[in-house]
Design a protein around this nucleic acid. Structure first.
Length: 885
RNA sequence: GGGCGAAUAGCUCAGUUGGUUCAGAGCGCCUGCCUUACACGCAGGAUGUCGGGGGUUCGAAUCCCUCUUCGCCCACCA
């Protein structure tokens, strides 16, 4: 593979085969568009990319051959937090932070880093054969896409759907930025719940509150109870003296409190908990922010706590409660804790000013498009996730306290007394109200705020470009399920809002690549497989085939990092088989073969042997089955269907069948060449989407092919109703069965491969099938016979077999036969059939069955009974002949 | 806590609306073969309570219930 793959890829690119125009054979028919999930600029290819892009490539190559204008649009994502973290780590090696180098210099630094590494992953995608239209590659921070981001932001602002608010958001104390709800990954964690006593200010007892984060009590400004809770009704309105901080806080009554949980009394920390924040607002409570952005204790807390890390502060608060005798008890408590999706740090809910998108109005039409059947999920059950998320959607926090990204297009007037905020598509130099100096918002937008626009921003929006008119909306979105909410669902919302239509109708969510212990492959676990190493060793085709054949719609792909060869043997072996079958057929061609139709010298129907008719019929069935499988996204099935045709039918039987015709003095060699080449050509084309390299290399070697022809844009094989030939299928199957039976006997009795045997077939009351005579040569050759007779035999000593249609097969083995053993073998077989017969008779005697089962099923069952009876009869007679007792 | 999915050969998985000899494929394993396309191959072979239990049906790997185990998504009960 390494000798041909990169050269072929270069040739495809050179020829511009991946542009939609190259495949347009339908003169302006509906284009087929897939948006590639843009990899992060700093990413290097892993198996997840391999799977994702293989699936997309298979689909786009399939549609390309079908003659649709096929566009697979690639790009890269600036990946705000991820990329900034990478460069910050590089700076850290020099002992610097981003604050040391300053915003402008830092952004420049990121930009040049990205410039160096940005294209690496795209080059790697080429190595696995990805046929994206690289001439259209975008980057989310390009000028065009930045314009789209501003357009979207300002439009939503004008519509009242973007607003600035003072709320509790998810804060990552390591990345020092706000995160959206989706970016805070909930993880079940074994923690503790502390029961703390808060004494009443006027003495006379205490209230016990339960908390999982004791350190936040430093910022408590109330204790809340349910208004109907009799245990606490008398305390509402009274004051408690907060231990440790020695502050008076009121007891308030609020419906949000669940009397059944914990003690029924909740400490209220409006600055550090979203629920508490709401309670605080309802009761006009002060907010005391006791933490710095780094999640250390702030100056708002007592001196001895200031500067302590939150978890150290937790221990100290608990210790002080214990010392004062106010720690009632500690219990283990399992609960979900948010973690930063980029660095894994525990999220701290934090009160701050952020920008939000109001999501409910955007979610409604997106839900409608699912309910009315416009959107189709594969697997279907993923639609449930989509609905559940949209129904419970909360506003999207889109501002990030980062430097790498699209700066928020909002300017604040700095002039005394002028509080004007300007939201603008273009740069603002002076306050439009007072002419005073302005300052742009320091924050950047969530990376996903640019990603959710790419189905149209990558095509030129907001400009009305020809590309936008042609390629929006697209058709399929192929994605990992992890980014269903981050990206896929949001694109649907933005598409509906800004373009008035969904960006795609089919959402294919593939599985995850895992190791044999079902752990997700990851760098940190060290259980990854490098796709490029696989390409280098076994070829991109082997990688692709192995991935595709090992998955069905939406299921995970399990690979063994400890057994690279085993994991990819299926693909490697098949690519090799294909190559060798191709070499055989092509090297035996003897010029351009006769056509099968459409010309005076075309092969006539009466020139076909049974085997020819059989392989043509099998080929036709394969076209039908493979096409249907691709259409239904059942890629493993499509690959499997062609695999079996090529290997089991074409290579194992047909190629073996035609050898005498090609080499010997048997006639019909020209027909065999034509049929072999034709069916092989069809198989190559059916396989091109999955194995583009080896199929291209072979296809181009066919004599008479124009020098610039490529299988990538060759016509998809058409099903030909005339090739349907159930008779040939059934008859050749008998040939296969008789060969199989004789081979079985040979193996059973240890007949040496070089030694020929004689074989006789006969049938009770009927003549043996004419197929045996038609393919006599095939049977003689493939079963290695010295004699093949349709007249039966009177010789008693030999091995017997019986075919499903009742044909008896007899192989006299002379002295080699062990009569006792053969009797045993026949007896076992007869007994097996006998048992089947009894069960079958019982079944047919069952009036319920005969009455209720469909007539065709009953008829079929009756036929089976007859066939088995005949088979058994033959065996019993053979036993008699052998003198078995 | 709410929702969803999976369990089939030693491993990874097919089995498409219940009905052909339906219990399968690939890898691995066993036996014999370097048969002039391919040993990454050829021929033959072994291996299963279709997770357990119950039910529906003339008939269940397939539909229903339940249990067990595993996985995924969602969740401001402190």
């Amino acid at each position: 593979p390494s000798a041909i793959e990169s050269a072929l890829y270069a040739w495809w690119e050179e020829r511009g085969l991946f542009s939609p125009e190259a495949s347009d054979r339908q003169a302006g028919g509906t284009p087929y568009v897939i948006m590639m999930p843009p990899p992060n600029v700093t990413a290097v290819l892993h198996m997840g990319h391999g799977l994702n892009n293989t699936v997309q490539d298979v689909l786009v190559r399939f549609e390309r051959m079908r003659g649709r204008r096929a566009l697979w649009l690639p790009g890269t994502d600036h990946a705000g937090i991820a990329t900034q973290n990478v460069v910050e780590r590089l700076l850290a090696r020099e002992g610097l932070t981003r604050f040391d180098v300053g915003r402008e210099a830092f952004v420049e630094r990121v930009r040049s880093h990205v410039h160096e590494t940005g294209a690496v992953i795209l080059e790697q995608l080429k190595a696995i054969g990805s046929s994206a239209d690289w001439s259209r590659t975008y980057f989310t921070l390009d000028d065009d896409l930045s314009r789209a981001v501003r357009e979207a932001f300002v439009t939503l602002y004008d519509e009242g759907l973007v607003y600035r608010g003072h709320y509790i958001i998810n804060w990552c104390p390591r990345c020092l930025t706000a995160l959206s709800n989706e970016e805070a990954e909930k993880e079940e964690t074994d923690g503790k719940i502390w029961h703390l006593r808060y004494p009443l200010a006027d003495g006379g007892g205490h209230v016990v509150v339960a908390t999982t984060r004791p350190e936040t009590m430093l910022g408590d400004t109330a204790v809340a109870v349910h208004p109907d809770d009799d245990r606490y009704r008398h305390l509402v309105g009274r004051e408690l003296r907060l231990p440790v901080v020695d502050r008076l806080v009121p007891v308030v009554a609020d419906d949000a409190v669940d009397p059944a949980f914990g003690t029924g009394a909740v400490k209220v920390t409006p600055a550090h908990d979203p629920a508490d924040f709401d309670i605080g607002r309802r009761h006009d409570l002060p907010t005391i922010d006791v933490m710095t952005p780094e999640a250390r204790i702030s100056l708002a807390a007592p001196d001895r706590f200031q500067g302590l890390d939150r978890f150290d502060a937790r221990a100290r608060v608990v210790a002080e409660f214990a010392e004062a005798g106010l720690l009632e008890r500690v219990e283990p408590h399992r609960h979900a804790v948010g973690h930063c999706y980029r660095c894994g740090t525990v999220i701290e809910p934090r009160l701050s000013d952020q920008w939000f998108v109001r999501m409910a109005p955007l979610a409604a039409p997106a839900l409608e498009k699912y309910r009315d059947g416009t959107l189709r999920f594969l697997p279907e059950r993923r639609g449930d996730d989509y609905v559940q998320w949209l129904e419970g959607i909360r506003d999207w926090c889109i501002s990030r306290q980062l430097w790498w990204g699209h700066r928020i297009p909002v300017w604040y007037c700095q002039a005394e007394g002028c509080a004007r905020t300007t939201v603008s598509r273009t740069e603002v130099d002076a306050c439009p109200a007072c002419g005073g100096a302005v300052k742009q918002d320091e924050d950047v937008l969530d990376t996903w705020f640019s990603s959710w626009l790419v189905p149209f921003s990558s095509l030129g929006w907001p400009a009305r470009t020809p590309d936008l008119a042609t390629f929006y909306p697209g058709h399929t979105l192929v994605s990992a399920p992890e980014i269903l909410f981050f990206w896929v669902a949001r694109m649907i919302m933005s598409g509906l809002h800004f373009m008035g239509d969904v960006p795609y109708t089919h959402i294919y969510l593939h599985g995850t690549v895992r190791d044999t212990q079902h752990r997700k492959m990851s760098k940190s676990l060290g259980n990854g497989i490098d796709p490029l190493e696989v390409v280098e060793r076994y070829g991109a085709d082997a990688l692709r085939y192995s991935l595709v054949s090992g998955m069905s719609v939406g299921t995970d792909v399990i690979l063994d990092p400890g057994d690279l060869e085993g994991s990819f043997a299926a693909g490697r072996n098949f690519a090799n088989k294909l190559w060798n079958a191709g070499r055989f057929i092509l090297s035996n061609l003897d010029g351009v073969p006769r056509p099968l139709a459409g010309s005076p010298e075309a092969v006539r129907a009466d020139e076909y042997t049974l085997a020819d008719r059989w392989i043509l019929a099998r080929c036709d069935a394969t076209v039908r089955e493979a096409t249907e499988a691709y259409e239904r996204f059942r890629l493993n099935e499509a690959a499997g269907v062609v695999y079996r045709f090529l290997w089991s039918d074409l290579a194992d039987w047909y190629i073996e069948q035609i050898k005498p015709r090609l080499f010997g003095d048997l006639s019909g060699g020209d027909v065999a060449r034509s049929v072999a080449l034709q069916t092989f050509d069809v198989a190559l084309r059916l396989l091109q989407p999955v194995m583009p390299f080896v199929t291209e290399a072979l296809w181009r070697r066919v004599p008479g092919r124009p020098a610039d022809a490529s299988i990538s844009v060759a016509e998809w094989p058409r099903q030909d109703a005339r090739a349907e030939d159930p008779v040939a299928l059934a008859e050749f199957e008998l040939v296969q069965q008789v060969v199989g039976a004789i081979r079985g006997i040979r193996a059973e009795y240890g007949v040496q491969p070089g030694q020929t045997v004689r074989a006789f077939v006969s049938r009770n009351g009927h003549a043996p099938s004419a197929a045996f005579e038609r393919e006599r040569g095939t049977i003689v050759r493939m079963a290695r016979l010295s004699e093949f007779s349709l007249a039966g035999s009177s010789e008693p000593v030999g091995a017997h077999a019986v075919l499903p249609d009742g044909t008896a097969v007899f192989v006299p083995l002379g002295d080699a036969i062990d009569v006792g053993r053969e009797c045993g073998r026949l007896g076992t077989e007869a007994d097996r059939l006998g048992a089947l017969l009894i069960a079958q008779e019982k079944k047919l005697a069952n009036e319920q069955f005969v009455a209720r089962a469909p007539a065709d099923v009953v008829a079929r069952e009756r036929e089976k009974l007859g066939a088995w009876a005949e088979q058994r009869e033959v065996l019993v007679r053979k036993r008699d002949l052998l003198g078995c007792r």
